[in-house]
Amino acid sequence: MTHDDHGDEHHDHDHGHPHDHGPFQPDLKEPSEDWEFLEIALRELLIDKGVITAREVEDKIEEWDGKVPENGAKVVARAWLDPAFKKRLLADGNKAVAELGFEFPGLKLVVIENTSKVHNVIVCTLCSCYPRALLGLPPLWYKSREYRSRTVREPRAVLREFGTDLADSVEVRVVDSTADCRFLVLPRRPDGTDGWNEEHLAKLVTRDSMIGTALALTPQGERSS
């Protein structure tokens, strides 16, 4: 846009730039909550006093951004292919995923298997506990009051909203993550994947299938219900 687009009245403004900026995307929300100010104050103090550096804070954020559901998918694909690994994984999640280089310090990783008879779905009604080392940061809906309160009470309705419609003959087991365990669902291996290698199988393992709100993808890469 050029100044020529403006009527004469705009030229009276003392700061000399056009006002008709068009639709701007709003900036990220400015801090407004007490806890946000507390975080900023604490971080700046720690940096000022030389306890940590700004770079270390950024490195930590990058490290967490690097934790992605593909980590969990690798664990699931390995379990589908290697019955001995699957047995170790179900018996002691921490130890088994350490074989693949993943760590859960201070928490107990519990892997629960979905079968033709039982479909597990994870929720944390009290906060937002989630196996972050394997799935990354939880999606916003996982932390929402709606998901947390409805999943324990109307699991079939919530699952249907995720496109997952299970027969009444299947037990839906809602796993409320209330304490020191972190749960990962081992989804059922899709039919028609005989002979597939680990990398190929891992592509069918979605984040939602490891939370239990969905099944693994079909061999064609489609959602299945």
Binding site: E154, P155, R156, D168, V174, V175, S177
Partner: peptide, 26 residues
């Protein structure tokens, strides 16, 4: 980990099938 029958928790006031359950760590 304690397992509860949905119906024992909600007494019909929810959307679940007869055999559905909920577990919590207590």
């Amino acid at each position: 980990m304690v397992k509860f029958e949905m119906d024992g928790v909600w007494a019909g006031n929810g959307t679940y099938a007869k055999r559905d359950t909920v577990t919590a760590d207590l």
